[in-house]
Amino acid sequence: MQPQAHDNTSVLGRLLDEISWEGANVRSYRDGGRGRENVLTAEVLTALDFLPRRAFLGAVLDNAHGADHARHTLSRQIEDAQVVFLPDEIVLNPDGRSRGDRLIVQPDAAITTPTAHALIEAKKIGRSSFQPQQLAREYLAVTRQAGDRTPLLLLILGTPPPVAVTGHGRLPIHDAIAHHLPTVHTLAHHPSPVDELTARIPDVCAWTTWHDLAHTVLTQHAHTTNTDPSTTAAITRLVTSITHAVARHS
Rank of each mutant, 00 (worst) to 15 (best):
P3Q: 09
Q4C: 10
A5H: 13
H6W: 10
D7V: 12
N8S: 05
S10N: 01
V11W: 09
R14W: 11
D17V: 07
N25V: 02
N25F: 07
N25K: 07
R27D: 08
S28Q: 08
S28W: 03
Y29K: 01
Y29E: 00
Y29W: 11
D31H: 14
N38H: 08
V39W: 08
T41R: 01
L45D: 11
L45I: 12
P52G: 01
P52V: 05
P52F: 06
R53L: 06
A55T: 13
A55M: 08
G58D: 01
A59G: 06
L61E: 05
A67M: 00
D68A: 15
D68W: 12
H69Y: 03
A70R: 04
R71Y: 11
H72Y: 13
P87I: 06
L92V: 14
D95K: 11
R97N: 10
R99V: 14
G100S: 09
D101V: 08
L103D: 15
I104L: 15
A109C: 02
A109R: 00
A110R: 15
A110M: 15
I111Y: 10
T112E: 05
P114H: 07
T115I: 08
I120Y: 04
A122C: 14
K124F: 01
G126F: 08
G126Y: 03
G126Q: 14
R127I: 14
S128I: 08
P132F: 06
P132I: 04
Q133M: 08
Q134G: 09
L135T: 00
A136I: 03
Y139E: 04
A141W: 01
A141Q: 02
V142A: 02
D148Y: 11
R149E: 02
T150F: 00
L153G: 05
I156C: 04
G158R: 01
T159D: 01
P160F: 09
P162S: 12
P162W: 13
V163W: 01
T166W: 02
R170K: 14
H174Q: 15
A178I: 10
A188S: 12
A188H: 06
V194L: 03
D195C: 09
D195V: 11
D195M: 10
L197G: 04
T198C: 04
T198L: 07
D203C: 07
C205K: 05
C205Q: 06
T209Y: 01
T209F: 02
W210Q: 01
L213A: 06
L218H: 07
Q220S: 14
Q220R: 15
A222Y: 02
H223W: 15
N226P: 03
P229G: 05
A233I: 06
T236H: 04
L238E: 08
S250E: 11
S250I: 05
